[in-house]
Write a protein that binds this DNA or RNA. Structure first.
Lengths: 339, 339
DNA sequence: CTGAAAGCGCTTACAG
DNA sequence: CTGAAAGCGCTTACAG
């Protein structure tokens, strides 16, 4: 399974190895005798030569490969599929191949960019990173090494600015609050997960901004137990609730049904993003009122940003793009009941 | 964008570049003075050095990259997703990265392996190919060049044997015929597409083998128009039909409904494989009796075959694996009506 | 125990 | 128009 090298081709064509490289890379402005070119091309075809990207890249040239690294497996979840679709389409349009880093060293069951101190992403010209669970140390190191990459989803790192393409959760959440407000809701709560992951923080921030604008104190619930949530909402006389995850929405729905109440008759509910992997595969039976995350566009935009980065067309680093989320009417929102 | 090199580290530590490499790769059996090692390690930490994978890989052979080439876009269709899932999982298990050839030169809207006469797949150690529409010339050339690859789906080439992992359509179709036979059907037909694509040929062959074993003349229909098909089945007094594509099955179903007849009351129907991209996304409303194509296992098996091929553990080429398809009971099969 | 050197495959000035 | 040479960052025998 010996690899054919330029030297081998050169020997066959009766020219120097450098000549083969010249023929391959053509447009260096150097004129080549047609007769020589023909001989080389024939040898090229005859041997089935292909460049060794390692050699080429070592020399300092790109290989038109974009890496795709994710902290989780990308194929199973419906969550990632639209993103990959966007990435693939745009990569094809831009003439890049895609290298999926599937082997990258796992530590404690999670993938790592760095394996024994080496950055595996270096094979590609640059990389797109995604995955909700990332490793801050990994990111910090990538930033320090100035490796060109773009994150899908807003990400901050103390090590420096990170280029990313995200969805504007702040604005989308704000719009959802306003939506409820317009319908007459005055007791609105956010039901979200704990922690300080960016997507969570953004939803909290959107909720807070909207609440303050309407001169309300933001009401945020973190309870995991649907029954507890239910009681808390009742205690606060909440009529409209913004819910971060599909699982939470479903728990609430079940509680309502058990209590003999209905959505949106007794409670309006807006899901903050079609953020659950089970969605799209025909998961939930409920037609949630919600906003949609523009996954495909995010993938495509990330590729474009990365390509620009590689071309050196973007002077400063720290480029951020936040794409808007479209509201989906759904069937879990209505005017509040008069009590 | 300046990268720290071993030479740089060596300069700082006051040793030779080779010494740095030795410290990094430790276990070469070469003893190193503790004091020297300490100095190097300090310089290593101080600079934040990481190995350049290009240099390292260039020294050895192979880059632990498996290519994945498909003649169509792979992400959108549900048809490919399980295959990719299997490929990804197995590649991860085997410690390989995946290179998706998305940029590969299009000709007449279809992807090509060869671009200006060079095999783009050569970047990877070996490749997995998939896609229903392939280019025979591409394949022949790959075989001639002895490029290591494995096809997903049975493929034959006049240029020589092709390694593949497929599904055993012959056997599965045979079992479907026998299934109908056991229920009492004696007039059984195959409704398939024209052409000599391997999957089609295999279904025809399975049907023929089963028919001959039961001493029946195989009855094969190719009509595209559902109405025509319907008439042909009636004319031949067919009570059980094996159908190659979901579209055909749906056409037939519509015809039956229009004629006031029902499946499986008046006609038993078995779909030969969940072969339609729309399946799985909640496409068809009918619960077809059919066999299932083991896509995920095919992907994983292909990776294993390719890795073995690369390791030189498989002496002869022309390895074939045909995985069994599981029958799905469904609701479109019953004993024939007595006339 | 450590350094100097070769060479992996490639691109690109630099001489002819 | 073409060849010889340098050098990208690394590992690994080979001398000291």
């Amino acid at each position: 399974m010996k690899r054919v090298t330029q030297a081998e081709v050169a020997r066959i064509a009766g020219v120097s190895q450098a000549m083969v490289s010249l023929v391959l890379n053509g447009s260096s402005g150097v004129p080549i005798a047609p007769e020589t070119r023909a001989r080389v091309e024939q040898a090229l075809r005859g041997t089935g030569y292909t460049v060794d990207i390692m050699g080429r890249r070592l020399r300092g040239k790109g290989n038109n490969i974009l890496g795709v690294f994710s902290y989780e497996s990308v194929f199973p979840a419906d969550f990632y599929r639209p993103i990959l679709l966007g990435i693939e389409a745009e990569a094809e349009a831009q003439g890049y191949d895609l290298l999926l880093f599937t082997s990258s060293g796992r530590r404690a069951g999670r993938r790592q960019v760095y394996e024994n101190g080496t950055n595996r992403l270096g094979i590609a010209d640059g990389s797109i990173l995604l995955g909700r669970h990332n490793d801050p140390a990994d990111l910090a190191r990538l930033v320090r090494e100035r490796f060109p990459f773009v994150f899908i989803g807003r990400r901050e790192s103390p090590a420096g600015p990170i280029d990313y393409v995200g969805a504007d959760y702040v604005e989308a959440t704000r719009q959802c609050y306003d939506w409820l407000w317009r319908l007459g809701h005055r007791r609105i709560a956010l039901l979200g997960v704990a922690g300080d992951h960016e997507p969570t923080v953004d939803r909290r921030r959107g909720h807070e901004l909207a609440a303050r604008r309407h001169r309300r104190t933001p009401l945020v619930l973190h309870q995991e137990d649907p029954a507890e949530v239910w009681h808390a909402l009742a205690a606060e006389q909440v009529t409209g609730v913004l819910v971060e995850t599909t699982a939470m929405a479903e728990g609430l729905y079940a509680q309502a049904t058990a209590a003999g109440l209905s959505l949106p008759g007794d409670l309006s509910l807006i899901l903050l993003g079609d953020n659950d992997p089970s969605q799209g595969g025909g998961g939930s039976a409920v037609d949630w009122s919600m906003f949609r995350i523009p996954r495909e566009e995010m993938g495509a935009a990330a590729v474009r940003m990365l390509v620009e980065l590689l071309a050196g067309r973007s002077p400063d680093s720290g480029r951020h793009v936040l794409l808007p989320c479209a509201l989906h009417e759904g069937g879990t929102v209505a005017a509040p009941v008069r009590r």
